[in-house]
Nucleic acid binder design. Structure first.
Lengths: 132, 132
DNA sequence: TGATCAAGTGATACGGTATGTCAATGATGT
DNA sequence: ACATCATTGACATACCGTATCACTTGATCA
């Protein structure tokens, strides 16, 4: 638990982080809430928000605009692919993208402060997509 | 009005599309609803959804995860930059991106069916960002 | 032009996601 | 062990978007 940053280590936070550590897929807030009935919904949202700000989880937008979250490997900027069927998420790190984006940024007025890239896939590994 | 595709041309739809035609920035659903008190909220949402499906508007995700919409120039696949302060939106079309993404897709299991790229900027053209 | 009827509308209710409030709790530093 | 204050959980609230359904209206055809 990398919560030594001024935050308290409480039972609900332990429960949430250890649940998330077990998930390799993306997750939604109420999915977490459902699997941890002992933790209040508000606390789930608060904790996820905390982890977001701490950079431990990323928020990603599905094709239909709904939100999902995903545990991030530490540190560097990266992107994601998401299986639109099963919700599996994997990080994509490609220096070529960053380079290209900074080239494109030169043609944009003002300052580009951030960007986001999501790839939507049929992963072929889950029941819904393996029929191919 | 390119609504000759089996849809009826009704007064609310005219009101909405002509309002959107005037906007060059992105917009949110309830912004439209506020500016057209005579049109019911449900109709605003339905019409925007229709325009989305028709490809006349794009949905985009802001940095904080909220949704915005933006009128699209016709046709081809493209991406957007958004000013995080004023909400100005502009289309970005770069063949290099598409090429790169299809290269990356080769390393991803399954089939990449879509992608989304957003650049977040301080446009430097609005009051909030021009102080730079 | 007027009748017809499905497409479309608006009011309302509803569902889902997320935050605000506040008294009670419990983790931390001493 | 104690005091303090961040954190919690229950609840209320807000927001975004959709479902329902009786009513209205636009397109079609005689």
């Amino acid at each position: 638990m990398l919560e030594g940053r001024g935050y308290r280590v409480t039972a609900p936070r332990k429960a949430i982080t250890s649940l998330l550590a077990q998930k390799r897929d993306g997750f939604t807030s109420d999915e977490v809430s459902d699997e941890l009935p002992s933790v209040g919904r508000a606390t789930v949202y608060r904790t996820i928000k905390l982890l977001l700000e701490a950079g431990a989880v990323c928020r990603l937008a599905m094709m239909d605009g709904t939100q999902m979250y995903s545990l991030c490997g530490i540190g560097h900027h990266h992107h994601h692919w998401v299986c639109v069927e099963c919700g599996a998420v994997k990080e994509v790190r490609a220096i070529a993208i960053e380079k290209l984006i900074s080239e494109i940024s030169a043609d944009i007025p003002g300052e580009v402060i951030d960007h986001r890239l999501e790839l939507y896939v049929n992963c072929g590994l889950c029941p819904a997509t393996s029929g191919k």
